[in-house]
């Protein structure tokens, strides 16, 4: 009889990723609802101190696996350890964030376990017959599928920001179990040589979840710093309209539109862009569109979900401050 809801907690340099806390928070709710226990699993080196954080965020039990070979994430070592743990403990469900680690680790783990994986999920429904049904966007969010499995455990990676963070309860305590890492030699064939963390690397336009874009209303290349400041707060890419590219304020590779790059981010913030048809056609499939423009007649307002008629030089700095508060 499978038992427990597991969250594989992701840490880097002993900092727990926000998405892991989101999952603990949501996991807690589901655990309470179903009577299951919520188990946090942390792999790494020197991670003992993290047990308190995860228990404060809702874990009933914390499994710590300490090993120098786990100090940095590697596919093989992590798979090796988790495979054995899961086979031993037989949880119902194993969740983790749909991060670079989650995306790399869980497919291999699922295959080794011979189970299914619901990847990049944006919702979990508790279901009496299959325990959990996972909602996942397909076709770049143009549809959703709901998947479930009767084979245990079910693995799932959950998209960051899907669930809200809970309020940590410092008074909570959880059972802490330390497991030794038993890593198969065959799992160490890929050697991590170097990790380079970019100080602030903006995502590539067509890969970005959020794009902040500026047009003719930017008035000059020097003003892009205010968009960049906004973008860096929310991890957005910075784009430009053709007019801004023509004016020489931005390189052509930043041009959004049918004649530049066609994008469909979750959020597109258009600042000082009037909205020529080629531009609109190149970003119209964005999930949410925000337009900030002085001209109330600007075409961009026809496609915007939220529009502010106003001077971007007034609006954007305040917006940046507000976003800082939200993102933390």
């Amino acid at each position: 009889m499978a038992k427990g809801i597991w969250v594989v907690v992701e840490q880097r340099d002993l900092q727990i990723r926000k998405v892991s806390l989101e999952l603990l928070s949501q996991g807690r709710k589901i655990a309470d609802e179903t009577g299951e226990s919520l188990v946090a699993v942390i792999l790494g080196q020197g991670i003992e101190g993290l047990a308190q954080t995860v228990s404060a965020n809702g874990a009933d039990k914390v499994i710590l696996v300490e090993d120098e070979k786990l100090a940095e994430y590697t596919t093989g070592a992590y798979t090796s350890v988790l495979n054995k743990l899961i086979r031993k403990e037989e949880p119902q469900v194993v969740l983790t964030g749909n991060t670079a680690v989650g995306k790399d680790l869980f497919p291999r783990l699922a295959q080794r376990l011979g189970v299914g994986l619901a990847s990049d999920c944006t919702g979990i429904e508790v279901d009496s017959s299959s325990f959990m049904v996972f909602k996942r966007p397909i076709y770049a969010g143009k549809a959703f599928e709901f998947v479930s499995s009767t084979v245990r455990p079910i693995l799932a990676t959950i998209r960051p920001n899907t669930f809200a963070l809970g309020t940590p309860d410092a008074g909570r305590t959880a059972e802490v179990v330390k497991e030794t890492a038993d890593i198969d030699a065959g799992d160490l064939r890929a050697i991590l040589k170097e990790v380079a963390i970019a100080a602030s690397k903006r995502p590539e336009l067509t890969e970005a979840n959020i794009i902040v874009s500026g047009g003719r209303g930017m008035k000059g290349p020097e003003n892009y710093v205010i968009l960049e400041a906004l973008a860096d707060v929310i991890g957005a890419a910075v784009g430009a309209s053709r007019a801004a590219v023509d004016a020489g304020w931005k390189e052509q590779k930043f041009q959004v539109g049918q004649t530049g790059k066609t994008v469909s981010p979750t959020l597109y913030i258009a600042c000082g862009i009037s909205g020529a048809i080629q531009h609109l056609a190149g970003m119209g499939s964005s999930k949410f569109i925000v337009a900030i423009n002085k001209d109330p007649e600007a075409n961009i307002f026809n496609v915007a979900d939220y529009g502010i008629v106003g001077d971007l030089f007034d609006v954007v700095p305040i917006l940046t401050e507000e976003f800082k508060k939200i993102v933390g």
Binding site: T75, D104, P107, A110, S119, D120, I138, Y139
Partner: peptide
């Protein structure tokens, strides 16, 4: 880009 699953290749390696 259809199912967005991002699993096949890594599973295949396994």
């Amino acid at each position: 880009i259809d199912d967005g699953a991002s699993q096949t290749a890594v599973r295949l390696a396994e």
